[in-house]
């Protein structure tokens, strides 16, 4: 099955490059470490054999789409990556005509660190759900929502409550929640891997990088780290597709996914909105309505 998918990806990539439908194809190549795939950029149709597909293709490739403004791009996407494309289209960051989407239904990506810990360098044959990345465990859009070409059998989507982790988290007391947040934020070294791995963090100038006004001091004082994480999350409210790229990119293993997931759940509950499904629907953060709920004002 996986071999067939790889074969189809290569064939289609070769075709769209040869027929000049696209100038470049963004996909995955074999990584240099165990349990690793790495983003690759193919321009020559003869190079398509570099392309692979496996359970380690966890990066959200949509993050690269804005890097080639003058090119027609072919891109290989999972469910989450396809939602990022829709979200970027909704915010007028991409033109659909310039992108050719090769979709692959995804059974969830495997957590490299968990596998290394459990199996060392010898990959397991059978993989249990517990080895999936947290974002993949909760995923409710395993199948690409938008594509020009689909390879692989559609995967059964989950139908239970999509935010079980957030529901549990909400049960904690305010002090417990704050303490957990502080502990996680305190590990931050401000390398901004979370920001850079995110397709939706596309600001030309991030608020942490401005110096007039200077919103945030440099360095690793806890209050500054907290402000960084809170504002990053708020800017993602209802814009984040829950792909988990931020958490996977973090070299310090900071748990940050729950923060954006909580905000996404709030946006779903308050505005009945889910990002990355309909490119015509603008996220609540990007629009204004006289009928916005304002219970908090009074």
């Amino acid at each position: 099955m996986a071999d067939k998918i790889v074969e189809n990806i290569r064939k289609e990539a070769k075709r769209i490059l040869e027929e000049k439908i696209v100038d470049i194809v963004i996909g995955f190549e074999k990584g240099t470490l165990p349990y690793t795939a790495s983003p690759v950029f193919i321009e020559n149709p003869d190079d398509v054999d570099k392309l692979i597909w496996n359970r380690y293709c966890h990066n959200n490739l949509a993050v690269y789409l804005r890097n080639f403004p003058d090119k027609k791009i072919g891109i290989i996407v999972k469910g989450c990556d396809s939602r990022s494309i829709v979200a970027l289209m909704a915010e007028k960051q991409l033109t659909r005509e310039n992108i050719y989407i090769i979709g692959v239904p995804c059974e969830g990506m495997l957590d490299k660190n968990k596998l290394l810990e459990e199996f060392g360098d010898n990959p397991p044959i059978e993989v249990k759900e517990e080895f999936l990345y947290p974002s993949c465990q909760y995923c409710e859009h395993k199948n690409p929502v938008i594509y020009d070409f689909l390879t692989g059998e559609p995967v059964q989507e989950k139908e239970e409550e999509p935010y079980p982790d957030v529901v549990e988290f909400e049960k904690k007391t305010l002090d417990e929640r704050w303490k957990y947040f502080q502990e996680e934020a305190s590990k931050c070294i401000r390398c901004y891997a979370c920001r850079q791995a995110c397709p939706m963090c596309y600001c030309e100038e991030c608020f942490v990088d401005t110096n007039s006004p200077k919103w945030l001091d440099p360095g690793i004082d806890l209050p500054d780290l907290q402000v960084w994480h809170i504002i990053r999350a708020y800017h993602q409210a209802g814009r984040c597709v829950d792909c988990g790229a931020c958490e996977r990119a973090c070299p310090m293993d900071i748990k940050i996914l729950w923060l954006t997931r909580k905000l996404n759940k709030d946006v779903r509950d308050l505005f009945e909105f889910e990002i990355g499904i309909d490119p015509e629907k603008v996220p609540p953060l990007g629009t204004f309505s006289l009928y916005d709920k304002e219970e908090f004002l009074i």
Binding site: P39, R190, Y192, P251
Partner: peptide, 13 residues
């Protein structure tokens, strides 16, 4: 540099 997402993880570590 194509695949690089220009975070500072490499240099900070």
């Amino acid at each position: 540099s194509r695949k690089c997402i220009t975070c500072g993880a490499c240099t900070y570590l």
